[in-house]
Design a protein around this nucleic acid. Structure first.
Length: 858
DNA sequence: CATATTCGGGG
DNA sequence: GTGTACGAATATG
């Protein structure tokens, strides 16, 4: 019955498709093969080999707002060759020009197909390399696969020094050489053709960038699935079905589920089975026509899950604009692609790019939404979902709400970070789909590839495995961190260097080709034996200069506006991120422009400049209490803001180029704690309170998962009491009160519960921790737990090892939790380093007696 | 203490 | 994607 229904639906789709093609034919007839000129915003690209040719497909929005696929087969791939002797060029070019390879390839049907790889033509060109103009042979080949095939042969010849630019990703090469920036307006000449596709298809004769005008508000659709997942176990798409899916877009909200219950919610739609639910997913995407499909961890969860389920039912997920299937790539399934639709996993982008400006330590949808949108997920007990699904469908409505809310959050997050993503796309010139998944090193490299073409710089090759292995072993001295003296301080001014490393690269001309130049013996790097050219600006310093000055211009524009401009702010942020990443890129083992000497020199100069400020600050009468990389913490003492300003300008006159020391702010008080069991102050662990009363906590592990809530809360509370109210006595009393409540078992179970995730199956553990012991017992009771299960347990009173006293919350009954454990292993360790600053020992914190001589401590 | 593994995110 | 994330944190030898 259902089968025949599907056949009917399929037939219907096929008829619709036929009509569409027919419609295109009519268009074609009307056009009469007339060449047309159109403009569109490409937002996704793909390439294929057709008849031994490399063909590029550009998917985008036409200037009329419709979906369009532009086919371009005019680009000829190439690589570069450097010969050993320049005199031999003509002979060599002729020899290379004759290269041709044939290869038989078996196709699906077993028919052998012949593939040709051949050199189409050769050219003599020049490029800059290591600061010099060099002559190269540009070898054009018939398709992109031929690059690796033919370059490998050429590389072996005696007359060849080296091959270059044979390892540039094809689409990257295409975009750079054609001068096309994704998402901005591109002009194409050609004609509309009939081809199976969602939207129009246009065959290009020529293509060029038209303007910097960028696509406005991509049409987005947020989505999220819920799956049947008994016992909160590791996720198993092979075993359990998808039970719900939600979508949220502009004027669109929907939840689809296949268990019926009574509801008045209009957004809930019922189907009869998981099969129908998957078909419905396809239908929604077909009708909504999103340009961007956005999910949260959808690369690693939603889309792979949907794909696995669809495969089980033999449903084709031909969602691409060209009806190609959804493809899940990457060893760890971390890349889900739909051709012609930007699938954006917003989690990936936020964690990689946005995270550096965020406070949250966890990147789950709820924490991220709370920080960026000011709202959380709906709080439901997901562990019950499978039970409700089986036994109490009446209660499913709240789960539908929960499901929809996730899509709403994802949609709003995507909207929020879209300016950042699109600005990065424009600057680095890479596709949104890619940018959303790139780390800093890749973003930087993408930008450098673009800039190389503009500056006519030869692109260095990727390192091979051996290089990477060696590079990984190299370590070098990093930034300077001052060892603070533990204690509480008042009136602290923080000064820092604005963009320290980028301005060092620029001011000291730190670049691979300016390193140890032969034209001038420049100033030697402190602590090192290198120097950098003082006559000719290097490629990367030029790029950094450009990034810094562009950002300054944008900041001026922002200052002139009275309203907050999200796009300008995003552009400024993107430029800053790229400039800041160049230092790390020099030292990154996978980098094309890897330069360990450069990275070393940057940190060496950094140490030099920060020491310089420390020394001069002390001479000027400030007491330095802390310093890390690019910042110094000064005690104001008898000095005031004017003295600070004077000091800063005194430093700044002497700084070269774009380097600048800035005033970060004044903090009314701050606390530095000592290292565990040691006298010395801990680096990177302090808490400060600024003039406006905001608390800044750095390095304290207040947010770690396997701490009980009571310990986390106490730590934060007492930092506030000490810094805000400057009342150590109150803080101590507070801790004692909590300890007393623990002793009397008055603190609620939810606050002493500890959550730890099982990393593997219970049987596989050799070391039995408390959470494993609990899991074992759960198994004994027939509760199915395994790798991935979150075990929540409480340590109970009694004798013996801690693991034998761990109980799951449901087991507790009238028993009491072990107060001593929570006092001595949770609360006291969380606060002892803070109190030891005031000479209060842990015995004093935990002692049952009311502290008699508290005043002794002050 | 060095090396191997696993985790995140998702239900 | 001219392919095979990544960097931190934890577990094991």
């Amino acid at each position: 019955m259902i089968q025949s229904l599907f056949r009917r639906i399929n037939l219907f789709i096929n008829i619709a498709l036929f009509l569409k093609i027919f419609d295109n034919f009519i268009n074609l007839a009307l056009l009469g093969h007339l060449m047309a000129k159109i403009q569109f915003y490409p937002y996704d690209l793909d390439y294929k080999e057709v008849d031994n040719n490399s063909v590029v497909y550009l998917f985008g929005r036409s200037s009329k707002g419709k979906r369009i696929t532009v086919i371009d087969d005019t680009f000829i791939p190439y690589f570069l060759v450097k010969s050993k002797q320049e005199g031999d060029f003509d002979n060599l070019m002729t020899k290379i020009g004759k290269l041709k390879l044939e290869e038989d390839q078996k196709s699906f049907s077993g028919v052998e197909k012949q593939i040709n790889y051949e050199v189409l033509k050769t050219e003599n060109i020049t490029k800059k390399s290591s600061g010099k103009e060099i002559n190269l042979i540009k070898v054009y080949v018939n398709n992109y696969k031929a690059i690796s095939k033919i370059s490998k042969i050429v590389q072996e010849w005696d007359s060849i020094k080296q091959i270059y630019e044979h390892d540039i990703p094809f689409l990257r090469r295409y975009l750079v050489d054609k001068g096309i920036t994704p998402i901005t307006l591109v002009e194409v000449e050609g004609e509309f053709i009939a081809q199976k596709s969602r939207g129009e298809v246009f065959k290009a004769k020529s293509i060029k960038q038209f303007s910097e005008d960028a696509i406005k508000e991509p049409r987005m659709l947020g989505f999220d699935i819920e799956t049947y997942n008994p016992d909160g176990k590791a996720i198993e798409p092979d075993k359990y079905p998808i039970i719900m899916v939600s979508f949220y877009g502009k004027d669109y909200e929907k939840v689809i589920t296949w268990k019926k219950f009574k509801t008045n919610e209009k957004y809930i739609e019922f189907v009869d089975s998981e099969v129908e639910l998957i078909e419905k997913i396809k239908e929604v995407i077909e009708h909504y026509k999103p340009e961007a499909l956005v999910g949260y961890f959808s690369d690693g969860f939603d889309l792979p899950y949907i794909e696995t389920r669809a495969k089980k039912y033999k449903i084709k997920l031909d969602l691409g604009l060209d009806y190609s299937n959804l493809s899940i790539n990457g060893r760890d399934k971390t890349d889900a692609k739909i051709k012609g639709i930007m699938h954006l996993d917003i989690f990936s982008f936020i964690r990689r790019v946005i995270s550096r400006t965020m406070k949250t330590e966890r990147y789950d949808l709820s924490s991220v939404s709370e920080e960026l949108l000011g709202e959380k997920k709906i709080d439901v007990d997901l562990e019950r979902l499978s039970d409700v699904w089986d036994n109490k469908p009446k209660e499913l409505e709240i789960y539908c709400k929960y499901n929809l809310k996730d899509s709403i959050l994802v949609y709003n997050l995507a909207k929020k970070v879209m300016p950042n993503m699109l600005e990065l796309v424009k600057i680095v010139g890479m596709l949104p789909y890619k940018v959303a998944r790139m780390g800093f090193s890749q973003l930087v490299e993408s930008y450098l590839l673009n800039q190389s073409y503009i500056f006519n710089e030869l692109i260095p090759s990727r390192p091979n495995h051996e290089d990477i292995k060696q590079r990984r072993m190299i370590t070098y001295k990093g930034a300077f961190v001052y060892e603070p003296k533990a204690g509480m301080y008042e009136n602290i001014a923080i000064l820092d260097y604005r963009s320290l490393y980028p301005t060092i690269i620029s001011s000291h001309n730190i670049s691979p080709e300016t390193l140890d130049c032969t034209c001038c013996g420049g100033k030697k790097t402190p602590d090192e034996k290198y120097w950098f050219c003082e006559k000719k600006k290097g490629f990367i310093p030029l790029v950094v200069d450009d990034l810094i000055t562009r950002r300054m211009r944008i900041k001026e524009m922002i200052a002139k506006k009275d309203k907050k401009d999200a796009v300008l702010a995003a552009r400024s942020e993107a430029l800053k991120v790229l400039a800041n990443s160049l230092y790390g890129y020099y030292g990154f083992f996978g980098a094309r422009w890897y330069c360990m000497e450069c990275a070393k020199s940057i940190t060496a100069w950094g140490r030099y400049y920060i020491h310089n400020v420390i020394d001069k600050a002390e001479k000027a009468g400030f007491k330095v209490i802390y310093s890390d990389t690019d910042s110094v913490f000064l005690l104001m003492g008898n000095l005031n803001k004017k003295d600070i300003d004077k000091f800063i300008s005194q430093i700044n006159v002497e700084l070269p180029g774009l380097m600048e020391l800035e005033y970060e702010g004044l903090y009314t008080s701050g606390i530095f704690v000592s290292m565990k069991g040691k006298e010395t102050g801990a680096k990177k662990k302090y808490a400060m309170i600024s003039e406006d009363g905001t608390l800044k906590i750095t390095g304290f592990e207040t947010v770690r998962r396997n701490w009980s809530l009571v310990a986390k809360n106490v730590q934060k509370k007492i930092l506030e009491m000490i810094l805000k109210e400057k009342d150590v006595e109150k803080a101590l009393k507070y801790v004692k009160k909590i300890i007393d409540e623990l002793r009397k078992n008055k603190v609620g179970i939810e606050k002493v519960m500890i959550s730890t995730q099982l990393k593997k199956n219970v049987e596989d553990y050799i070391q039995i921790g408390p959470h494993v012991a609990v899991a074992k017992r759960m198994k004994g009771k027939g509760i199915d737990v395994g790798a991935g299960s979150m075990i929540r347990y409480v340590i109970m009173k009694g004798k013996g090892m801690i693991r034998d006293r761990a109980r799951m919350v449901e087991e507790i009954g009238n028993e009491k939790y072990d107060s001593d454990y929570y006092i001595n292993h949770q609360v006291v360790p969380a606060v002892e380093s803070i109190f030891s600053v005031f000479n209060i020992k842990k015995e004093d914190i935990a002692s049952e007696k009311e502290q008699s001589g508290l005043s002794d401590f002050f």
